[in-house]
Computed example of a mutant assay.
Amino acid sequence: MASKLKLVIKLSIWCVVIASHAQITYPKASPFSLVVQEVGLSKITVEYSRPAVRGRQIFGHLVPYGRIWRVGANESTKITVSTDMEVMGNLLPKGTYAVYAFPELDAWEIAFHTNTGHWGDGRKEYDPQEDLFRIAIRAKEVRYHQENFLIDFDSITHNKANMRLRWANTQLVIPFKVDTHAQMETEIREQLAKNPTAQTYYEAARYLQEQGKDYPRALDYLNKALELGGDTYYFHRVKSLVLAKMGDYASAIQSAEKSLKISSELEKDEFVRMNEANIKEWSTLVREP
């Protein structure tokens, strides 16, 4: 009896060993992809799999109309936003969500779903009450062929980005918005409350200049940057741009000339060209009555 028990144990161990070595790692038909897109000070991260067309009819056939789709293959597509965002008037709080689609011939519904534990589309386990919200998007037919399903971002600024879903000859565009200016104002306030350097003041001023906001405050920051850091070609360069926006072209030219002199000495050719072009432009405006 004991010998039989030992034999059973040995066979069991042998089966486990064989099973553990029987796993074959093979390439996936729909490979995983990770997209990370910065939008201002925020990030949008998308994790999804990319099925291919392979000569098949996609929407309305492989992906039926009127039925939930996982927006890719394998696991459900996940989207993570590092800060609160807005999607077509809906608040998307900081966090991770599953993204599902309900394709139709023209108008689709896209669901941002709070339950990220489903495999694929969840099928019977999917509960619409766990949707954070849904948006309606009109699908657009495009000329070019997208072989592998693709999620990417375009039209990116500090405050917004368009997420594009593309497969075969169909494209959907989902706009995301983020209040980067409010984040930057908090960042500027916190950094200036510590022990600000010349670079701190310059970066705050440059942000305001690039965004076309509060030029008098930007000028004050630039003057402090110059006071702490001395003559610097890019400090004077941004100061000239701010002064020009404030309509003080004579002072703008003076700052541009200082930037031109220093950048010439340092062989910063790009700054030389930009300053020369601005001086020429602003000189005509100064002469105007």
Results as ranks from 00 to 15, higher is better:
87 V>E: 02
7 L>D: 00
229 G>M: 08
102 F>I: 11
60 G>W: 08
109 E>L: 12
221 Y>H: 09
32 F>T: 09
32 F>N: 09
108 W>Q: 03
182 A>K: 14
110 I>H: 02
202 Y>A: 00
190 E>L: 12
88 M>F: 01
119 W>C: 07
259 S>Y: 11
119 W>D: 04
285 L>M: 14
66 G>V: 01
187 E>F: 05
23 Q>N: 03
249 Y>R: 11
104 E>D: 14
160 K>H: 13
39 V>I: 15
121 D>Y: 03
208 L>V: 04
5 L>A: 08
116 T>L: 10
271 F>C: 10
47 E>P: 01
51 P>R: 13
115 N>H: 08
194 K>Q: 01
84 D>A: 13
228 L>D: 01
269 D>C: 03
276 E>N: 15
72 G>I: 09
31 P>M: 05
130 E>H: 10
213 K>L: 15
256 A>S: 15
241 L>Q: 15
52 A>L: 12
209 Q>V: 08
217 R>H: 02
214 D>S: 10
97 Y>K: 02
109 E>S: 15
231 D>A: 14
282 W>C: 06
204 A>F: 00
6 K>Q: 07
49 S>H: 15
254 Q>C: 02
138 R>Y: 01
106 D>C: 07
226 L>V: 09
34 L>P: 01
245 K>I: 03
246 M>P: 05
248 D>G: 07
178 V>W: 06
93 P>E: 09
194 K>A: 00
139 A>C: 07
266 L>R: 14
24 I>K: 14
272 V>M: 13
270 E>H: 10
103 P>E: 04
155 S>A: 12
36 V>M: 03
141 E>G: 11
207 Y>H: 07
129 Q>L: 10
91 L>I: 12
9 I>D: 00
169 N>P: 00
13 I>N: 00
175 P>S: 08
3 S>M: 02
1 M>C: 05
269 D>Q: 13
183 Q>T: 06
123 R>M: 06
181 H>R: 08
236 H>D: 14
9 I>N: 00
236 H>I: 05
205 A>I: 02
67 R>A: 09
167 W>A: 03
114 T>V: 10
289 P>R: 12
47 E>A: 12
61 H>K: 15
160 K>T: 09
250 A>Y: 08
256 A>N: 14
51 P>L: 05
152 D>V: 02
180 T>G: 02
150 L>E: 14
64 P>Q: 02
85 M>C: 08
123 R>N: 13
54 R>P: 01
206 R>Y: 14
198 A>L: 09
15 C>V: 14
142 V>C: 06
65 Y>L: 01
265 E>R: 13
115 N>F: 04
45 T>K: 05
174 I>P: 00
250 A>F: 04
260 L>M: 13
260 L>E: 14
8 V>P: 00
99 V>A: 11
216 P>S: 03
152 D>S: 10
195 N>W: 00
110 I>E: 05
271 F>M: 13
74 N>L: 03
70 R>D: 02
216 P>A: 07
84 D>M: 09
29 A>N: 11
164 R>Q: 10
